[in-house]
Amino acid sequence: MSHQTETKVVSLTNRLNDLDKIAGALEDIAELWSLPVDLTMTLNLVIEEAFTNVVNYAFQDESVHDIELVIQKIDNRLVISLKDDGVAYDPTLNSDPDISMSARDREIGGLGIFLIKKMMDKVSYERRGEANILTMEKLIAD
């Protein structure tokens, strides 16, 4: 069985200003692949959360590091992977925040990975050589 695959590769660095690049790339593929506005926003959100985590926590020096974002549409599946050469870290092992707490007790932060897990259908992590690869998948409704 042949699959219909479309791929977009976005080269990023560990600078938060590259969030604009991510938003721009998503606008492009939303048009090319006819993605609904809500889905595009969800994809932007999960990529931002994953990317921001990498930028803020993966590197112990001040150097510029390349981060590769690959967005694929395979039939009715969207597969997003983010690859960095930072310290080994599996964000899928993070414990979920307690979302039933009041504002007073609720901790600031810890929501990013939780949102990714909730909004995507599948999230997996792999350490390949010196690279962290986080893969996030979502089915597109017909």
């Binding site: 959100l45 931002e48 504002a103 609720r106 600031i108 932060g109 929501l111 949102l115």
Partner: peptide, 11 residues
């Protein structure tokens, strides 16, 4: 659009 960083400021 809002990400967890934006929610953090609300909180």
């Amino acid at each position: 659009y809002v990400s967890s960083s934006g929610l953090r400021v609300f909180l």
